[in-house]
């Protein structure tokens, strides 16, 4: 009979130390950015005024949100589709078990790391200088962002597939491409669709933020209304966005659940 080892006692000094460390770090960081509770309370009068001006939301403004909102969605869709397609070779070549050789693998891994390290706003600025501020720059930036998201997640899940089927394709005289298409992709397809939907959710949100810096869509309207002190319209926009994002995420999530 195997003996069940006794449950190890909880390490109290470690727990205490960790908590003390976290508290100290938070205090230090708050101090560093000049965040102080007293100041926040003194300024609350301004905050209250802002809240009063923002209520009630301007429902009459709602119809004028439809076009910019659709533009936001279009940007997200183009970004997801273009990035989704380009991420396929990037992910496959970055999967250790499928790649074409150590040099290609290494180069592709580093390419992915660069894409991921630079934030979407950086890419928006970069493409804006190339093609001018607007929806096209936004969609290009989101394409890059999508490649970064999908290729990272998918290359990892491709690394865990069963290599039996790819080997069987090779054994029939199949090429590398056929080994990928018939041996590997059928096993990774569900994950791919799931990651693409997830990237779309992220892109809808990112596309609004990009609008703030001029990429068009709902973010741009939000920025113009804010600059004109139209706070009741701003509230309306935020509410509409909140509802729309929740709906999109619900749909996407239920599709992903069904796939899993």
């Amino acid at each position: 009979m195997a003996m069940v080892p006794p449950k190890p006692a909880r390490n109290w000094p470690l727990w205490g130390g960790t908590i003390a460390f976290l508290v100290a770090m938070s205090w230090w960081s708050a101090h560093g950015i000049g965040f102080s509770l007293t100041e926040l309370l003194c300024n609350s009068a301004g905050g209250t005024r802002l809240l009063q001006e923002s209520w009630p939301p301007d429902f009459a403004f709602l119809p004028r949100l439809i076009d910019p909102f659709m533009e936001t969605i279009y940007i997200a869709i183009v970004g997801t589709v273009v990035g989704g397609i380009l991420s396929i070779p990037v992910a496959i070549l970055a999967a250790r078990n499928l790649t074409l050789g150590p040099i290609i693998w290494f180069a592709d891994r580093n390419f992915m790391n660069i894409l991921r390290t630079l934030p979407d706003l950086f890419w928006a600025m970069l493409f804006a200088t190339a093609v001018g501020f607007g929806p096209v720059a936004g969609a290009l930036a989101l394409s890059v962002f999508t490649i970064a998201v999908i290729s990272k997640l998918w290359s990892e899940s491709l690394e865990s597939i069963d290599m039996g089927m790819p080997e069987a394709v090779r054994a029939c005289g199949g090429t590398w491409l056929q080994m990928v298409q018939f041996g590997a992709i059928p096993q990774g397809l569900q994950h791919y669709v799931s990651y693409a939907l997830y990237a779309f959710e992220l892109n809808v949100r990112a596309s609004m933020v990009l609008g703030l810096v001029g990429a068009g869509g709902i973010g741009m309207i939000l920025e113009t209304q804010r600059a004109n002190f139209e706070y009741e319209r701003v509230t309306m926009i935020i509410l509409a966005v909140l509802v729309a994002v929740l709906i999109i995420e619900q749909i996407s999530e239920s599709i992903r659940k069904r796939l899993a």
């Binding site: 089927m165 394709v169 005289g173």
Partner: peptide, 24 residues
């Protein structure tokens, strides 16, 4: 080649699996 674990694409039809033998 024939394997202990069959090595078929489960989601695909029998015909699609057999056609893999025609790839080359």
């Amino acid at each position: 080649m024939i394997f202990q674990d069959f090595r078929l694409v489960k989601r695909l039809t029998v015909m699609s699996n057999v056609l893999i033998g025609r790839l080359a």
